[in-house]
Structure formats: structure tokens, C-alpha cells
């Protein structure tokens, strides 16, 4: 009997596919998410929109909050650590969370190095903006990948940009001749072994979710049609005027993403979506996606 294997780490992400992972800050939120059909929750002290508004240094949540949420629901509970903060990750593993998100939404603890995730039994998910970044994180041991998007904006444009970049990278790598792969790996800054593996298999070795800006059922379905395996919704649910029906609608839209009639139906009467931000209005030093490398 062996625990913490690559197979069980990547396997849990495979079980989350076609599902919606929702940010929650209280046990009550977590129960609403579970009841709506979320396949997992992300336990936080504040949703990204509030982290963005508060400014300052954003850190791992208080373990009391995480434990209360773990008690409240039976679905997997994820929690975030700062980029490179391997001690926050150790603490989260000790709490028994099911997945750790080494996340750009929190203030990075290390500007040069990410956590060496192979050392942990608990699996990690990491953000990426393109295929090279995805493969660097997988090389460090991330068992699941998500787009960075631009968290807390309610604006899907960055998640679309990042998902398209990953998919485009895969298509190009598949058609790259073998003798050009090493140069390609250098150009992408990605581990050669993973570049070669992807060239042969034609797909990422781990599950790839969309994140960072999903606010409506149509946003979720858009990301699924672009090739996401599932969707994270951060501020989009609990910063909207009526979280419960919106959560249910986003779950349905993620399952039935190829069915426009269902998307139209579930989009009715959801109330106000979260307030959105134009990315161009955000000063470049406040963009979360540029944290990490």
C-alpha cells in the first residue's frame, strides 16, 4: 500500500474534471457550494476581489478557517499557499487539505523559486499563462494546472488569453519535428523530457482547469469549449447579488457546455454578476498574473 504517488495525485484532479471548484470563506459558503454541486471548494480568508481591494500582503488563510470548512463539507477542500512559501505548504499538508494551490493571488514569498512540490504527499495545482510555464510547474511536481487569468476582476479576457496560449503551444509542439524539440524546449524554458512527452502524446500530462475571471455560466462554458477540463470560480459566485442560483447555474453550464439551449436557460434571472474590472485600468504592478515565472 503506497500513499502520495504521482498516480493518486494526478488521479484526484482527474476526478474533479467537468466540475466547478468554488472559492469560499466560511463554512456556510462551503455548504452552499456543495449543495450547488461544486466538485471541490477552495478555503480562503478573503476572495480574490477583496484581496485585491485590501492590498498589502496576502498570506495563507488562518488554519481555523480552513479546518471549519473541512468539517462543514465532504467534498475535497483546497487551500492556497504563497508562491515559494514551502512552510505554508507544509502547514497545509499537516492540516490535511486535499489539494494545495501555490497561488499568485497571494503575495509571493520567493521571487526566484517555486515550491519543490515532489517533496509533498499532498498534490499541488499551479497557475500558468502559457505552455512553457505549465510544463515548468509540472516539472516541479504540480499534479494539476490552471490558467492564471486575472483573479478578482470578473473579467474573462485573461483566462481566455492563457487557455488559448496553452492550447496553441500544444498544437505547435505536436507538429514540431523531433530534431527541433531541444531548441523549442530552450525557447519555452520547459523541461525537455516533458516537451518530448507532450510532442508524442499530444496532450498535457495533468488536468488543466480554467481560473481567473469566471463570473457567468457562459464564461464557464466558454472556457470548457476552449479546452479546459473544468473551472475554478473565485469571486464570481459570492461577490454576485445571488450566489446560490448562480453557483448552480455555473455547475450546470460546465456539464452542458456544448448545449447552447441549456446555457441560455440557466443564464436567466441570476441577478447582478460580480462588479467587473477592465484589465487596462489596472496598473501593471497590481496585475496578479505576472507573479511567478
Amino acid at each position: 500500500m503506497e500513499t502520495g504517488t504521482w498516480k493518486v495525485k494526478t488521479g484526484l484532479a482527474q476526478m474533479l474534471k467537468g466540475g466547478v471548484i468554488m472559492d469560499v470563506v466560511t463554512p456556510e459558503h462551503a455548504k452552499i457550494a456543495e449543495e450547488a454541486g461544486a466538485c471541490a471548494v477552495m478555503a480562503l480568508e478573503r476572495v480574490p476581489a477583496d484581496i485585491r481591494a485590501a492590498g498589502g500582503v496576502a498570506r495563507m488563510a488562518d488554519p481555523t478557517v480552513i479546518e471549519a470548512i473541512m468539517k462543514a463539507v465532504s467534498i475535497p477542500v483546497m487551500a492556497k499557499c504563497r508562491i515559494g512559501h514551502f512552510v505554508e505548504a507544509q502547514a497545509l499538508e499537516a492540516l490535511g487539505v486535499d489539494y494545495i494551490d501555490e497561488s499568485e493571488v497571494l503575495t509571493p514569498a520567493d521571487e526566484a523559486y517555486h515550491v519543490w512540490k515532489h517533496d509533498f504527499k499532498v498534490p499541488f495545482v499551479c497557475g500558468c499563462r502559457d505552455l512553457g510555464e505549465a510544463l515548468r510547474r509540472i516539472g516541479e511536481g504540480a499534479a494539476m494546472i490552471r490558467t492564471k487569468g486575472e483573479a478578482g476582476t470578473g473579467n474573462i479576457v485573461e483566462a481566455v488569453r492563457h487557455m488559448r496560449a496553452v492550447m496553441d503551444g500544444i498544437r505547435k509542439l505536436v507538429s514540431t519535428p523531433q530534431e527541433e524539440l531541444m531548441a523549442k524546449a530552450k525557447e519555452m524554458g520547459a523541461p525537455f523530457a516533458l516537451v518530448e512527452e507532450l510532442h508524442k502524446s499530444g496532450k498535457l500530462p495533468v488536468v488543466n482547469f480554467a481560473a481567473g475571471g469566471v463570473a457567468t455560466p457562459a464564461d464557464a462554458a466558454l472556457m470548457m469549449q476552449l479546452g479546459a477540463d473544468g473551472v475554478f470560480v473565485g469571486s464570481g459566485i459570492f461577490k454576485s447579488s445571488n450566489p446560490e442560483p448562480r453557483a448552480k447555474a455555473i455547475v450546470k453550464a460546465t456539464t452542458h457546455y456544448q448545449d447552447p439551449k441549456i446555457i441560455a436557460e440557466v443564464s436567466k434571472k441570476l441577478g447582478e454578476a460580480m462588479p467587473g474590472l477592465d484589465i487596462k485600468q489596472i496598473p501593471s504592478e497590481e496585475l496578479l498574473a505576472s507573479r511567478g515565472w
Binding site: 503506497e2 500513499t3 475535497p76
Partner: peptide, 14 residues
């Protein structure tokens, strides 16, 4: 019985 072995860190191969 759901989650009979515990949380993810108890997931295993055998």
C-alpha cells in the same frame, strides 16, 4: 461508506 480511508493524503495504490 464515503471517504472510508480518509482525506487525499490517505489515497493509495495497492
Amino acid at each position: 461508506k464515503r471517504n472510508a480511508f480518509g482525506r487525499q493524503i490517505e489515497s493509495f495504490e495497492a
